[in-house]
Amino acid sequence: MATFRIKRYNPEKQPEAYYEDFDLDIPSGATLLDCINLIKWTKDGSLSYRMSCRSAICGSCGMKANGHALLACQRQASSLLDKDGTVTIEPLGNMKPIKDLVVDFKPFWEKIDRIKPYLQPGEEPPPEKERTQSPEQFRLIDDTSTCIMCGNCYSDCNTLEVDGNFLGPAALAKAQRFVSDSRDQNTHERVRELSKPGGIWDCTHCAECVERCPKPARPFYRIKEIMTVALEEGVHNNNGARHALSFTRSVKASGRLNENQLPVESMGYFNIKGLLELVPVGLRMLLKGKIPPIIHKSIDDVKDVKRIFKDLKQ
């Protein structure tokens, strides 16, 4: 007998959410969704959740099991039990619960809209037939095309937990779908928009989105791809781009990171407000003797590192 500890919420009856335990014999090979269906059909018909295809295609049944987002139809229930035979089921995170396991996807869809999720082929008249791509060109957007908009990445994104302004992994992965599309003619404007606060440079590299993505879309990798395009396109007037460029210059010069130079160059030499923000932590570290050595030493054989940079025209 397994216990399904489900977070219940019905604001029409009581304002606070609570947990309710349902005991169930897990049928052999049953998915988490199969079990939740059984609970609804045989124990409590008022349990609310989204579902449809039962085949990890529609992306409806996203929820949290033991604190992490997944598709309920994609995991065997027995694999989720803890040592006491319990699995805790909660609604997806970073979105407002509506009832039980149903959350409000409105901000999720608004952010997808914000990245202009449609082809912008430019002013040229359309070709007689379709706009074709070579297999190599398609490969650049193949992975992100598999996104099923389940919201699992959005749910577990560490930046979104503290900053609702962040576009989030799903919208940014969708953005890469168009940034890297050979048929789209608006790349520069797209990466300029995506480099603003709330965009690519606010991704904290936690890679939770890769872990939770049920498809090859893996948003973190897509975000990194947009960053590379943004730097190639010369969209450098922001802390994220300056940080990447300063970091790389530092490794090129000495083989290692210059920790004294990086914060200043990331902020920008004329960004007085940003530079002042560095003062408190700088002073604290100075007083404790934690400031990195003022004379920045290179690694041994830095010549070879410089050669690699040169060979790659970096």
Binding site: T248, V251, D300, V302, D304, L312, Q314
Partner: peptide
Amino acid sequence: MKSAACCGAGVVSEKSPLL
């Protein structure tokens, strides 16, 4: 390893994954 270069911290790859 005194001649090993910085790992790039996931930042150098933003400039160039190959690098």
